[in-house]
């Protein structure tokens, strides 16, 4: 055994112990090596001194002082927890509700116009009844615009169709828009935002 190995064993013997064979080998080495004997003595001294050094008594009123502080901490976590729970419930609700809302908006037909009172919705059909005259522009999203009366403005269609009844008239231009996914999403989010702000203003 060389000194390097002996010193490694000396350290190990201070902690998790070494087996009998190793102890025997170490003993034989120490008998013949003064330097390692000195290392052994130093290590023992150090561990003993660290042990003494580490002992310091706390003041006698420490426990009392600690116990007096307890009411201060007891209330804090509960309050914070209730608050956190409310926040996380709201977050979870938004997380679930917003995709549903977006999906619902994306798949349901919409009609945007300046003169909503002239148009009747029947399921996914928007009907301009016979005798009605729409003086303005129409934008139809998903669904069918059925004209029995008269439309004088421009009609924009996004994923939508226009059906002209036997007496229906359209004096303006028809523009078909091919909607990209991003555009649809943007539309849905814009709708959501508008509803939320309206809700907030209405609530105040």
């Amino acid at each position: 055994m060389n000194c390097r190995e002996a010193r490694r064993l000396l350290h190990h013997s201070l902690d998790d112990g070494i087996n009998l064979t190793q102890a025997e080998q170490l003993k034989r080495h120490l008998e013949n090596c003064q330097a390692c004997r000195q290392v052994e003595a130093s290590l023992k001294e150090i561990t003993q001194l660290v042990g003494e050094f580490a002992v310091v008594a706390a003041p006698s009123n420490f426990t009392q002082g600690c116990m007096q502080q307890l009411p201060r901490v007891r209330l804090r976590p509960r309050k914070r927890q209730a608050w956190l729970r409310a926040i996380s419930a709201a977050m979870l609700f938004l997380l679930i509700a917003s995709p549903i809302y977006v999906w619902w908006t994306l798949t349901s037909p919409q009609l945007v116009t300046d003169v909503p009172q002239a148009i009747v919705q029947e399921g996914n059909r928007f009907v301009v009844p016979a005798g009605q005259v729409v003086r303005g522009n129409l934008t139809v999203y998903k669904g069918i615009l059925v004209i029995h009366g008269e439309v004088q403005g421009t009609i924009q269609t996004v994923d939508a169709k226009v059906e002209l009844g036997p007496h229906g008239k359209h004096l303006g231009v028809t523009r078909e828009i091919e909607a990209s996914v991003q555009a649809k999403l943007a539309l849905a989010l814009a709708e959501l935002w508008e509803k939320l702000t309206r809700f907030r203003v209405g609530g105040d």
């Binding site: 580490a54 310091v56 008594a57 706390a58 420490f62 426990t63 600690c66 116990m67």
Partner: peptide, 22 residues
Amino acid sequence: EESAFAELVDKYKDRIFAYLYR
């Protein structure tokens, strides 16, 4: 039971204080 907690503090106060002090 606060008395049980006080016992825990009493049991470990010296060790924890000494460790932190050093």
